[in-house]
Simulated scan of single mutants.
Amino acid sequence: MMTDRLDAAMEAAITEKRIVGGVLLVCERGETVYARAIGLSDRTSGRVMEVTDRFRLASVTKPIATACFMSLVEDGTLSLSDPVTAYLPDFRPRLPDGTAPEITLHHLITHTSGLGYRFLEPETGPYAQAGVSDGMDQPGLSMKENLDRIASAPLYFAPGTGWRYSVGLDVMGAVAEAVTGQGMQALIDARISRPLGLGSLAFAVPPAADLATPYINATPEPKPLRDGDRPLLWGEGGVTFAPSRVHESASFASSGAGLTGRAEDVMAVFRSLMGHGPAILAPETVAQMMRPQIPSEVMTIRGPGFSFGYGWAIVTDPGLAAAPDPAGMLKWGGVYGHSWFIDPAAARVSLLLTNTAYEGMQGILPAQILEAFYT
């Protein structure tokens, strides 16, 4: 029955032209129980989507990068209570009154730092005025230049007093690079990919047929995403896309949005964190990541019934969450058209990667996938 409902949801998304193509993987107790590619990877050439195709991962990067950061915490290289300035002395964003409060690494990875994202503002906002990159635009922009731009914009609130989705993971990546002397690609390779035997997780890749072409929802069918496109999302803000960014090796490694990779490699990371396959983190570290780190009443975007841990949102009150999510579920998405969830109680992981924004992240399809399991 579950398989039939998943098939029906995927097929309807193609038939109704809500997505061009996608891959859905589901694992239970570490074993694959559903794997399907559907639709087209590239509509112009007619290339059929394959389970092994690669995607621009957007914020699916975040749990992978967070696992990498937590491995640095495990071995004593970093402490989440450390101030950012211990590693980046010049990174001192200020409140509107001119004071420069202490931002800790914990603040960065829980989005309680007071930093923001440009895509959540109108184009008259401070991040837009400062030219900040959200990690998916401005090919060739360096990490140092983007840090300077972020630091020049005012903080939204004093660190630790609120929650706002932000470029904090990109700043955390700069911290990791500073303390180790290695780039984020080398850190991901050493701490995630090699232990798990993965080969696709990369911040910069050349053009290739197996890299899915990105699209954006439109009528009568999705249209190709182009550099500079800024489709509206959540009100007056909008993500500025530059699909060519991943082909420019000089682009800074965005720990919040910059990875590319295959669904099976992302799933391997999730399986490892759930205790199946080679371990990249100790069980007690994963348990820490799965604990709510902020009061649910300050959580935005997901809304009531959610908190945030290290790397993901956490369902804390199913009665308030606007979906059939069970308590303890971990979940997030990616603006290129992705959504995923982990249900620790059921030992279940679902990963949907599509090439169509924003349907694959927050449209009918991800809702129907959840309903296939929980209604």
Score class of each variant (00 low, 15 high):
Met143Pro: 00
Gly256His: 04
Gly334Lys: 00
Ala86Ser: 12
Ala130Trp: 03
Gln182Phe: 08
Leu198Ala: 08
Ser249Gln: 12
Glu123Lys: 05
Gly22Gln: 11
Gly173Phe: 01
Ala242Arg: 02
Gly238Asp: 12
Gly183Arg: 13
Glu236Trp: 12
Leu259His: 05
Thr61Trp: 07
Ile314Trp: 04
Val179Leu: 06
Ala202Arg: 15
Ala367Pro: 00
Ala158Glu: 15
Leu141His: 00
Leu115Ser: 14
Ile103Glu: 08
Pro101His: 15
Gln182Met: 11
Pro139Ala: 15
Phe373Pro: 04
Ala158Phe: 02
Gly183Phe: 01
Gly46Glu: 06
Arg271Val: 06
Leu141Val: 15
Leu225Lys: 04
Val286Ala: 01
His107Leu: 07
Met1Ala: 14
Tyr165Glu: 10
Thr104Tyr: 05
Tyr310Gln: 11
Arg94Tyr: 02
Gln288Trp: 09
Phe306His: 15
Thr161Gln: 09
Gly46Asn: 09
Pro126Val: 08
Thr61Glu: 08
Asp229Gln: 11
Ala372Trp: 07
Pro344Cys: 07
Met299Lys: 05
His247Ile: 03
Thr219Leu: 11
Arg47Val: 10
Glu31Gln: 15
Pro278Asp: 07
His106Asn: 14
Leu211Ile: 13
Ser272Thr: 06
Glu297Lys: 07
Pro222Phe: 07
Asp265Cys: 00
Gly235Tyr: 10
Arg47Met: 08
Gly168Ser: 05
Gly135Tyr: 07
Pro222Arg: 02
Leu80Asn: 10
Gly160Gln: 09
Glu31Leu: 08
Pro292Thr: 03
Val269Pro: 01
Ser71Asp: 06
Asp53Thr: 04
Pro214Gly: 14
Arg230Leu: 08
His111Val: 07
Glu236Pro: 08
Leu147Phe: 11
Val246Thr: 14
Phe341Asp: 10
Leu225Phe: 03
Ala204Lys: 01
Pro304Trp: 05
Ala67Ile: 01
Asn217Cys: 12
Thr375Lys: 14
Ile364Ser: 06
Ala35Phe: 04
Leu57Asp: 04
Glu264Gln: 12
Pro96Glu: 11
His111Pro: 09
Gln185Leu: 09
Leu370Ser: 09
Thr285Phe: 03
Ala345Arg: 13
Pro122Cys: 10
Asn355Ser: 13
Phe308Asn: 10
Gly22Cys: 06
Ser142Thr: 15
Ala151Thr: 07
Pro122Glu: 14
Arg56Asn: 06
Gly319Glu: 13
Tyr87Phe: 15
Met299Asn: 12
Val205Cys: 01
Glu16Arg: 12
Gly125Ser: 05
Val26Thr: 05
Ala158Leu: 09
Leu233Ser: 11
Gly228Asp: 10
Ala178Glu: 04
Glu359Trp: 01
Phe270Thr: 08
Gly319Asn: 07
Asp53Cys: 12
Leu57Glu: 07
Tyr87Gln: 00
Gln185Cys: 10
Gly238Glu: 13
Ala279Lys: 12
Tyr34Arg: 05
Thr356Asp: 05
Thr240Ala: 14
Asp227Ile: 04
Val26Lys: 08
Met184Lys: 02
Met70Trp: 05
Arg43Asn: 03
Gly131Met: 03
Ile103Trp: 02
Ile342Pro: 01
Leu24Cys: 11
Met70Glu: 12
Gly173Tyr: 05
Glu145Lys: 05
Gly76Lys: 07
Val239Gln: 10
Leu120Met: 15
Gly305Ala: 13
Asp170Ile: 02
Glu16Gln: 14
Pro159His: 08
Arg43Leu: 14
His338Tyr: 08
Phe119Val: 06
Ile216Met: 11
Asp137Val: 00
Ile150Gly: 01
Leu78Cys: 07
Met136Cys: 10
